[in-house]
Design a protein around this nucleic acid. Structure first.
Length: 114
DNA sequence: GTTATGACTGCGA
DNA sequence: TTCGCAGCCATAA
């Protein structure tokens, strides 16, 4: 463990999101042990674009399934296109059947990797 | 070292 | 997905 930092922790979790699945900032933050730090999760994803490995940030949305960060992808349709590319239905910047596509790291990743 | 911001969440009305 | 306000953690300036 050393000190991976909050950002790296977020990246690792996001990368574990299966194809065609999505999760919320709070779910990731909760997995990290601080559900209140959900805002930091979004911030980390924002930095994920900065010369770092690719992170499926488009699979991370707020708990309403709304593409709150679509604007950070450069063009509004980018995030939407990526989600649709994974078979996720997106309507009005909002994921359809969100709870059906929802992927909770706390439940799906009971052990992760330490 | 302090202040302000943030891709959020939860609770009250 | 009600709307509005406050809180919490971590990073950047």
């Amino acid at each position: 463990m050393t000190d991976p930092g909050f950002f790296d922790a977020v990246y690792q979790v996001v990368r574990q999101i299966p194809f065609g699945r999505v999760t919320s900032y709070g779910a990731i933050a909760k997995y990290l042990g601080s559900p209140q730090a959900a805002r930091m999760v979004g911030w980390a994803l924002n930095k994920s674009f900065d010369g770092k490995g690719f992170v499926p940030a488009h699979r991370v949305v707020n708990r309403f399934g709304l593409l709150t960060g679509k604007n950070y992808f450069g063009y509004s349709d980018t995030m939407k296109q990526l989600l649709e590319n994974e078979g996720i239905m997106v309507e009005d910047d909002q994921i359809q059947n969100f709870e059906q596509k929802f992927w909770d790291p706390v439940k799906e990743m009971p052990e992760a990797e330490v």
